[in-house]
Amino acid sequence: MSNLNQAMIEKYRSSFLNEVEANVEEGHWVKMCMQCGVCSGSCPLGPHWEHPPQELFMMIRANEREAVLKSDSMWMCTSCYNCIARCPRGLPITHIMHGLATYAKRLNLVPKKQPTAEFGQMFWDSLSKNGRVNELKIGVGLYFKDGFAQGVKNAMAGRELGMAMMKTQRMNAMEYFGGHKCKDTSGIQKMLKKAQEFEDQQITRFDGKEG
């Protein structure tokens, strides 16, 4: 996968903006930013980002490729759409953030221990295995992702909520062992495999093996 990153670096040596335009979902919008900063000011999680959206756009323009792709900023987006609603140029900023995150993941540049990325991976693993998400397993997985001791602490902190959910039958402890699957698990897996093939093809195009 790091080969892909290297290939991209070489292909778009002069312009990260062009790279983003070609490879990131909605990336062609980045160039339309008129640098007003309203997205950055509107983000409810703004204070927790290292680089707010407009800064990411400006860094893209300034060829600060590594800093952008290795940043965990775009992973912070919670899809509240405040930025999209207010952007005077109509940039789909939320989608661009997700697009950048996805691209960074594809290039294997996600920062270690990035919680959104970890959650995404768990979600995906659960989904792709059974055709549906096992909420309990994901929940437990998240609780314990930072080690056993932290997991216990997390579980204790959430215990009232957990008990209440069990009481009202919103959660079933037995789901942890196996749990529901969709009707045609193998069908789903076949579909996903096919999709993965397409995706891999896409990637190999840039991987120096082709074109």
Binding site: L17, N18, E21, K31, M32, C33, M34, Q35, R61, A62, R89
Partner: peptide
């Protein structure tokens, strides 16, 4: 016209 320039991918740096 500014928008047209952006659409053509002209980079603008303050």
């Amino acid at each position: 016209f500014y928008r047209a320039g952006q659409e053509k991918g002209v980079a603008f740096s303050k």
